[in-house]
Simulated scan of single mutants.
Amino acid sequence: TRESGHHGCRRRRREKGCDMKVLDPSIVEGADGIAELLAGGLATLLGPEAAARWQIRREHYQPRVLLSADGDGIAAAALVSNRPATAALKIVDLWCCEAPALTPMLDAVIAMARQARAAVVKWEIRHDAGLPEAARPRGFVEMQPRAHPDPGVDGYALWLTPLPHTEPRYYAQSTEFTCGAVAGLLAAELVGRPGFSGDLRDRRLELDFWRTASNFPACEPIGLAVAVQRHLGVDRHVEVALDTENPLLIDEFRGFDREFRIELQNDSRQHAADLGVTVRGDRVEIAEVAERISVGEIALLLITQTPMHGQNEPHWITAHASDGQTLVVVQDPWLDRPGGETWVDAHDLPIRLAELDRMCRWGRDEHRGVVFVARE
């Protein structure tokens, strides 16, 4: 968030051809439209560092720019984005020529979020910039930092749908394949067991946990539940709901590569029995998942990435809060950094139950795998 010098900003808007006629407020949608807007003079107003962020092509994440204008051209601009199938809107950046223009632009963004039925508005702010004073009366509060703090980006949240809950720290998976390990370790933290420490030991912990849970490279539900139970100890109950007795996540393998993964999954079932991990064979309904989370349980959810990222890949997320009826709040350990995402996108992310039902399916038969972890 930046404000330009009063007189210099007006002069640049006239001199650089930024006096385009803009409705108040107007919306420019899509990566191509934003690129054209930047080339037409907005990049000059933003400055090189900010313009570079605005030029990232976020097309899968529904980028939009809200604009307001006065007699000299663009007076304020807000770049927003959101993951599809989620109930969050993110302010990537908000620029204004003069301080008075910030408040109506911020209110326009909040109004847009309400119209889209977003549960939360997140604001990604450069670490040395700080939250503008106009945002605090509207209810924006700082979000918990990542386990390894990002020195460049802070995050603030305005919950439009109140959902009181304990906010966890955020940790991003450091590989393409350790989502299950990160999800399990985040669950451990949430139930009061050792998790990430916030230093260089965390990556080794992530990889070591993945080794114990992996079906190489993916973590299947029962193997992940066994690893979580071993990490937590016997005084925390772990339960698996998996609607098939057949091996999972092996469709792409043949021959030996397939057979040894089947052997590992059979072994995981035996370990689950030995450790007292409950294994259900029915298809758990999302309504039950939400209700159990709302009374304190943690749920590790096997999802497809298609609704959020357009990629049909298996993935684990940690669901840690819910109102029991409409929303579930998750930690997603994966970020699309080339697409402009930061920890602000994936942290404390609300998802409506209908969308979560669409995500929690995997493979041709759309199997559902959920690992429940009790807090006590």
Rank of each mutant, 00 (worst) to 15 (best):
P168A: 09
M112P: 00
Q144Y: 01
V182N: 09
V109L: 08
L160N: 01
S174K: 06
V109G: 02
R136M: 05
R169T: 03
Q115M: 11
F140G: 04
V120D: 05
L131D: 03
I125W: 04
A183D: 04
H148G: 05
V182Y: 09
H148T: 01
T161E: 14
P162L: 01
P145Y: 06
S197V: 12
A147N: 10
G130V: 13
R169Q: 10
V191S: 00
R193Q: 13
G139H: 04
P151S: 10
I125T: 13
C179A: 00
V109D: 07
A118M: 14
A134G: 07
G180W: 04
A181G: 14
M112I: 08
G192L: 09
A147E: 11
P164E: 15
D154S: 15
Q144G: 10
L185P: 04
L186W: 11
E167I: 12
D107T: 10
V153C: 09
V153A: 12
A183T: 14
E189D: 15
P132Y: 11
P145W: 11
A113G: 14
R169S: 09
A181C: 14
L131E: 10
L185E: 03
T178Q: 00
W159D: 08
T175W: 01
R126W: 13
K122E: 02
C179Q: 02
W159R: 07
L190S: 12
D199R: 13
P162H: 01
G195D: 06
Q115A: 15
F140R: 09
A113Q: 04
T178G: 00
G198Y: 08
A183I: 03
A129K: 14
H148F: 05
H165P: 05
K122M: 05
D199W: 13
P164A: 13
V141I: 12
S197P: 02
W123E: 07
P137L: 06
M143H: 10
V121L: 06
D128L: 11
L131R: 12
A116Q: 15
A116Y: 07
L190P: 02
V153W: 14
H127W: 08
A108T: 11
F140T: 05
L106G: 05
V120F: 10
L190R: 13
H148C: 01
V121E: 02
F196K: 10
A113Y: 04
V121A: 08
H127G: 08
E142D: 07
L185C: 06
R136Y: 07
P164F: 02
W159L: 04
H165R: 13
R126A: 15
D128T: 14
R138V: 12
A172F: 00
A187I: 14
A172S: 14
P164R: 07
W123C: 13
A129G: 03
A187L: 13
L200A: 15
V141Q: 13
A134K: 06
R136P: 00
L160E: 05
I125C: 14
K122S: 09
F177A: 01
T161Y: 09
G198K: 10
L160Y: 04
Q173T: 08
P164T: 03
A119P: 03
A113I: 01
W159K: 01
Y156E: 07
A183K: 09
T175N: 03
L106W: 05
A116H: 11
V191A: 02
A172L: 02
A108K: 06
E176D: 15
V121D: 01
R126T: 14
L163T: 14
M143S: 15
L185N: 01
G180V: 01
R126K: 13
Y156N: 08
T175Q: 13
R146L: 04
Y170Q: 04
R114H: 10
